[in-house]
Amino acid sequence: MTEATRAAIDDIIDAFRCGDHARLADRYDDDIEWQLHAPISVFPFAGIRRGKNAVLASLLGVYRDFQIAGYDIALIMVDGDRAATISDVRVIQRSTGRVIVSHLASFHRFRDGKLIEYRGFSDTFDTAGQALGRELDDWVPQERSISPWMPKPDRG
C-alpha cells in the first residue's frame, strides 16, 4: 500500500505544480474531506471543504487570487495509506503583486489511490501579515511581547 500511496502523492504534487486541474480532479475522491487551517477572512479558499466539487472550487480560488511561483517539496513521508509533506511555497498575490513565502505542512490519506482526506497548516500569523502587507505584531499588546529569556524582536 505504501508504494501505491507514494505514487499517488507524487502524482498530486506534480499535477499541482503543473496546474493540471483535470489530473488533480481525477486523484480526488468524490467524498474527500479537505481542511486548510487558515483564516477565511484573509484566505477565502481556506477552511473545511467536503466533496470533490467543493475542493476543486476552493483550488480555483487559490489560482484566482495567487500565481504559484514556486512549490518545492522539502520533505515527503509515506506510511501505509497516509502521506505527509513539508513544502516551501512561493506565490504572487494577483491583486497587489506581493510575493508571499511560506512553509506548508500537509497530511494526506488515500483510499483506492484517491485522496480522501487532507489537512494543511502554515504559520498563518506570518502568511496573513504578508498577504495584508502589514506587521501583525503591531496588533499584539506589548506586555505580552516580552519574554524573560528572549530579546524583543528587532523590527528594524
Binding site: A38, P39, F121, S122
Partner: peptide, 12 residues
C-alpha cells in the same frame, strides 16, 4: 506547525 493566527487570537 499550527494555525498560529488562530492561536494568537485565542491567547489574546
Amino acid at each position: 506547525f499550527t494555525d498560529s493566527l488562530d492561536i494568537v487570537e485565542q491567547v489574546l
